[in-house]
Amino acid sequence: MFEAKLQQGVIFKKIVDAIKDLVKSVNIDASTSGLSMQAMDSAHVALVSLKLNENGFKDYRCDRPITLGLSIENLSKILKCAGNDDTITLQTDEEEPSSLKFFFENQQASKISEFSLNLMSLDSESLGIPDTDYSSVIQMSSAEFSRICKELSSISETVEIETSKESVKFSVQGDIGAGSITVKNNQSDKDVDRVDLQIDQPVKLTFALRYLNMFNKAVSLSSTVSLNMSEENPLMVEYKIDDLGSLRFYLAPKISD
């Protein structure tokens, strides 16, 4: 028996919206400790990693580990039928399920919707991601990071991110010209202004803005985002989801020819 009930079903809707442009199908692994998922885009440039802890769910039961192979597009179609204030319950009784049941219930418990999504058997393509002590960690407003990436992507396809003890600089060079946006360390009480820089070693890395813009679809999951970088390593962009877990994106850097 597997059953997971999310009080705020809208969070699940937002997660699926945030990854649906990046990955087409995913294996969700359910275990006693919660749900996890890892999937790469078809070009193997970006990876999404989701972890939801069992104690973040209103009800959670998983008697034995199961893998749920899902088409994100089809999952998205079913989740469109859930209201933003609904609870969402995932359920299956089978040991090797061929479908996953969904229950959506509104706050007044006056409307209950029930759907079943056919599952797929997917080759798992799990990568071992080493635990990394990142040499530059930036925590800032997710909306502000999203705005910067969006603005710069009209000038260039790539952005160079350079950290120093005091600031992080986003630079672009394109056919029409060049520019940069520098964000300084700022210990404001307001989330929207706050910028936390933990710089052990400065880094300078270049990334494709197209992917960063896709990651930023997760902006509504968290008011802050953390950018974790080490020289010659993939960027890790993390959105923490309150008590539930985290949504992480990894992006391979652009390297010199």
């Binding site: 070009a43 440039v45 990568l127 790539t158």
Partner: peptide, 13 residues
């Protein structure tokens, strides 16, 4: 510059 692949950083499990 060229785009690198995640496969060159992370190993298969």
């Amino acid at each position: 510059m060229k785009q690198s692949s995640l496969l060159s950083f992370f190993g298969n499990v």
